[in-house]
């Protein structure tokens, strides 16, 4: 049987060193176990026409597009918006992409998953305008915790993420949309909000101290 193909489009400028990539690669591995072949592309690298052409022909040859990105200013990072715009202008009518499912994976640095709602809506509009089969958005808050920590069954903090991604893979294998229960599972907070805020604020101070700029952290270099 011919292997189904998935395309991963990474919107994080940090590429493979990003929390976004960690999340998506877990889902890709699950899909691989179910017989999917896959290719990975980075939005930041698709500016040149020949690079975009390569991406677009891989997309035409696939049955599933996964778009993963960090939430930047309530929306998608700029380079990803450019790529999605180009997909819309390149697609020749609905028929070209209508046999492909589209899934968004959104990682938000703030604790509240609901801050990703506008980005989810953007992805849904993109999907509708290009004729994809919208399979849903897996969105989560506290995403910064995943920059050095991959989802795992054995990690009490991330096991619900792993479970959600595994369940999503089963639905995508069967060419079905991701159910609300799976979307809600990944959206659960990794820790209490107060703890995330405390750890986050201490973390910035610690990292600044390591770089010997702790006392400059609140500087206002452009104050006249």
């Amino acid at each position: 049987m011919k292997a189904r193909k998935a395309i991963l489009l990474v919107g994080s400028p940090k590429g493979r060193n990003s929390a976004s990539y960690n999340l998506a690669s877990y889902l890709l591995n699950e899909l691989q176990l179910k017989g999917f072949a896959h290719k990975c592309f980075f939005a930041r690298d698709l500016e040149k026409t020949e690079d975009f052409d390569r991406f677009y022909s891989a997309l035409l040859d696939s049955s599933l597009l996964l778009v993963v990105f960090p939430l930047y200013v309530d929306q998608l990072p700029a380079s990803l918006i450019s790529v999605l715009k180009e997909i819309r202008s390149r697609s020749r009518g609905f028929a070209e992409l209508s046999d492909k499912q589209l899934v968004a994976i959104i990682n938000c640095g703030f604790p509240e998953t609901r801050q990703t709602d506008p980005a989810v809506a953007i992805m849904k509009i993109f999907s509708d305008q290009c004729g994809f089969q919208w399979a849903g958005a897996l969105a989560l808050g506290m995403g910064a915790m995943l920059s050095k920590r991959k989802p795992s069954d054995h990690d009490h903090m991330t096991r619900h993420i792993a479970a959600s991604l595994k369940a999503a893979a089963v639905h995508l294998e069967n060419h079905k949309p991701i159910p609300v229960s799976v979307i809600e599972m990944i959206a659960k907070p990794l820790m209490p909000h107060w703890l995330y805020i405390m750890v986050g604020n201490l973390g910035w101070k610690y990292r600044a101290k390591k770089n010997r700029v702790r006392s400059l952290l609140t500087d206002r270099p452009f104050q006249p």
């Binding site: 929306q75 998608l76 700029a78």
Partner: peptide, 25 residues
């Protein structure tokens, strides 16, 4: 309006406004 959001030219600038914010929550 691009998919209901901002276009990439404006978004590129807004993605880089974090120096005028503080890191704290």
């Amino acid at each position: 309006l691009v998919f209901g959001g901002y276009g990439p030219e404006l978004k590129k600038v807004l993605d880089r406004i974090i120096p005028v914010l503080l890191p704290f929550f």
